[in-house]
């Protein structure tokens, strides 16, 4: 990638500062140079015959954007592939200027990308970019979400029939789900293929209906899949603290035979248990 913000050389080598700045001021001046290109720092830097101060400083300023762009490229691979190197680097520079890092770990640097893409022109004119960012950030946060014990189908089998209506369910901490309107799943798959062929990458396309996707971690491996409408209703119900009885109510209108509501809810629950999406099943106390 090329950097449009690479700082020019040959402007400051003859100027020297006689004022000794306090450490805090010196660091602030240096930071202003890295973040905003303010050249005041050059007067505090030694020039040598072989390498002038501005060329020396440029190593730091170029590294600043390059390092942060590299981090964003790892986090948002699909977006970088779709935009291409130069356009993505420009995006990274604008993002970095808007949301400079405030966390000691680069792990968190990309956390505002959805917000940035949703609000910033021209990216917000291609809404699939923000939707892809939701998906890619979900992968990152699921990947290192807290560990938790996983409930099993055996745990469910030990629950007495009379306890089921009051049963509450705790989702695995890595679960996140979201709605989307564009074909982001095929886009993500195509752009994440090793040696992907740019010509074969799916074209962004608006879907006929809004879909939902769930992302979670099974063992050490991050998983994703589309959610059926009834599954999405149940996840929402659980997230709001609903018990099994309320989960069944949430399915009203989605299951033809009302007598089949508990069976459908139990069936979905069984599938989630086998996929390690549930960390705890809790019965009410006697």
């Amino acid at each position: 990638m090329t950097s449009p913000k690479q700082h020019s050389q040959g402007q400051h080598r003859l100027v020297q500062s006689k004022v000794v700045p306090k450490l805090k001021d010196l660091q602030n001046i240096f930071k202003q140079y890295l973040m905003h290109g303010d050249s005041a720092i050059a007067t505090h830097i030694v020039s040598t015959k072989t390498f002038a101060n501005d060329a020396r400083l440029a190593i730091y300023s170029n590294a600043y954007y390059a390092r942060l762009a590299e981090s964003l490229e790892k986090d948002y691979t699909s977006i970088s592939v779709l935009l291409g190197d130069n356009a993505f680097y420009q995006l990274c520079e604008r993002y970095t200027d808007t949301f400079p890092s405030k966390n000691p770990s680069l792990r968190w640097f990309g956390q505002h990308m959805v917000d940035f893409l949703s609000r910033t022109s021209p990216y917000n004119e291609s809404p699939y970019l923000a939707e892809l960012a939701v998906l890619e950030w979900a992968f990152i946060t699921a990947f290192d979400a807290p560990n938790a014990v996983v409930a099993t189908e055996l745990d469910a089998a030990q629950i007495p029939a009379g306890k089921w209506p009051e049963l509450t369910i705790k989702l695995h901490p890595s679960i996140r789900w979201f709605k989307y309107q564009w074909n982001i799943l095929p886009l993500w798959r195509a752009t994440n293929e090793i040696n992907h062929d740019a010509a074969k990458i799916a074209v962004p396309k608006l879907l006929d209906t809004t879909e939902q996707c769930v992302v979670w971690r099974k063992g050490l491996s991050t998983q994703y899949r589309t959610l059926d409408q009834d599954e999405a209703k149940l996840l929402l119900c659980i997230a709001e603290g609903g018990n099994f009885s309320q989960m069944c109510e949430a399915l009203v209108g989605l299951v033809d035979d009302p007598n089949q509501l508990p069976m459908r809810a139990a069936s979905i629950l069984k599938s989630w248990l086998s996929n390690e999406m549930i960390s705890h099943l809790a019965m009410t106390e006697e």
Binding site: L23, K24, L26, Q27, N28, F30, K31, L34, M35, Y60, A63, Y64, R67, L68, S71, P100, S101, K102, N103, P104, L106, F109
Partner: peptide, 15 residues
């Protein structure tokens, strides 16, 4: 490595 609440993610030299 940072100043004023901003992290630069680089190892900046001291005077």
């Amino acid at each position: 490595t940072g100043q004023g609440g901003h992290n630069l993610h680089d190892l900046m030299p001291l005077p």
